[in-house]
């Protein structure tokens, strides 16, 4: 197990670690795991809700990172965003494959408007992206904003979101789709 108490991370540190992982440096992978696995495990747990499933997806995530670190481009994305995308993608593939039963209401505590407080880890990277996203989410109506947030954090489906809000499926789809279109236009400004 890698040692605990990692030093404070900077985006450059994490990007440099991914760069080293791409050359086959296992020590760099261990260091990356030490600094980022708690965040990614939290992300997996929120979507999968089951400890064992989340552990397996976390394992798959770092194996994928080992093989695909060379495709990471620091000019295009923060290292954490890239890692979160790999982990979420694996968690969503697993939960949508139907092998994992959804046990609870997926929105147990995630149906909040976007949390504006940055975590210690994310605060250091791509702060401009975060501010732009929060500003643009703030321009959306409340329903689409909350639904998009819940879909990202909890991996909720259109059906689950519609059931939870007590609206027809078509209404929820329209809210989210128009919200995403508006979000895209705002983010491109």
């Amino acid at each position: 197990m890698p040692a605990r108490n990692p030093a404070p991370d900077s985006p450059a540190d994490l990007a440099a670690l991914l760069d080293a992982v791409a050359t086959g440096d296992e020590a760099a992978l261990a260091d990356l795991y030490r600094r980022t696995s708690a965040k990614l495990f939290g992300v997996c747990l929120r979507i999968l809700k089951e400890q064992g499933e989340a552990e397996e997806v976390l394992q798959e995530t770092y194996i994928t990172v080992w093989h695909r670190a060379g495709t990471y481009d620091p000019a295009k994305a923060g290292a954490i965003s890239w890692l979160v995308a790999v982990a979420r993608n694996k968690a969503l593939d697993r939960i949508r494959s139907g092998k994992v039963r959804r046990l609870t209401d997926p929105l147990e505590d995630g149906f909040d408007p976007a949390d504006p407080s940055p975590s210690a880890l994310a605060a250091v990277e791509h702060e401009d992206d975060r501010r732009a996203l929060m500003a643009c989410l703030g321009e959306l109506d409340e329903e689409p904003r909350r639904a998009i947030h819940a879909a990202f954090i909890e991996g909720a489906t259109y059906e689950q979101l519609a059931t939870l809000r007590g609206v027809p499926l078509g209404t929820m789809k329209s809210w989210i789709r128009r919200g995403l279109q508006k979000l895209r236009r705002c983010l491109e400004r």
Partner: peptide
């Protein structure tokens, strides 16, 4: 992925076994 990635800020880190 890049634009929505910072929504993960709201997720509490959980140490993995």
């Amino acid at each position: 992925e890049v634009r929505l990635g910072s929504l993960a800020n709201a997720v509490k880190p959980v140490p993995a076994p």
